[in-house]
């Protein structure tokens, strides 16, 4: 089945089976292996990408249903701000918000969507938002710190 969509700002058209999940399409067909799959019950959030700017679980989306839509993955995130690193990526690095790195792409994509909606969040809001992103390494403490810092950076006045 033919599908046309934008992935990280690039027009992509492909002929794919309807059963292909977006996560597999990204990883296998587009060779964008930054999107990870850590469970089979749509819970862990390692696969979170943005669809038209909104965080969704790519392991629970059909690639064909993305026809006409715009998908951003961890590989394309920095490009959305025209920098080498998105402020949220930088914040994860600076705050030691990752260890093994497996949950990190989904965590960062989820965090960016959170930050857009919550310009001045509380710690509790960050923790509740992460209900759908599981990390086994960090105890979340530095992830929460990273998201608070990254959110601040995203909303900092230009030139700050």
């Amino acid at each position: 089945m033919k599908v046309e969509l934008s992935i990280n700002g690039r027009a992509v058209s492909a002929d794919i089976p309807p059963s292909l999940l977006l996560s597999d399409f990204l990883r296998e067909n587009c060779e964008l292996t930054g999107t990870h799959v850590g469970c089979d019950t749509s819970q862990c959030g390692a696969c979170v990408v943005h669809v038209d700017g909104v965080s969704m679980k790519s392991c629970t989306l059909l690639a064909v249903a993305m026809d006409g839509r715009s998908v951003t993955t961890i590989e394309g995130l920095a490009g959305t701000v025209g920098a080498e690193l998105h402020p949220m990526q930088e914040a994860f690095h600076v705050n030691h918000g990752l260890q093994c790195g497996f949950c990190t792409p989904g965590m960062i994509m989820s965090a960016v969507d959170f930050a857009k909606r919550h310009p001045s969040p509380t710690e509790g809001e960050v923790r509740r938002w992460l209900e759908g992103n599981i990390c086994r390494c960090t105890g979340y403490q530095n992830i929460v710190a990273a998201i608070l810092a990254g959110t601040k950076a995203m909303h900092a006045p230009q030139g700050d």
């Binding site: 292996t33 994860f92 690095h93 990190t104």
Partner: peptide
Amino acid sequence: ILRKEDRRFITGKGNYVAD
């Protein structure tokens, strides 16, 4: 000091077996 290994993970360039 900040971790040297972070960059590949935060940019989706890690190289896991499934990749």
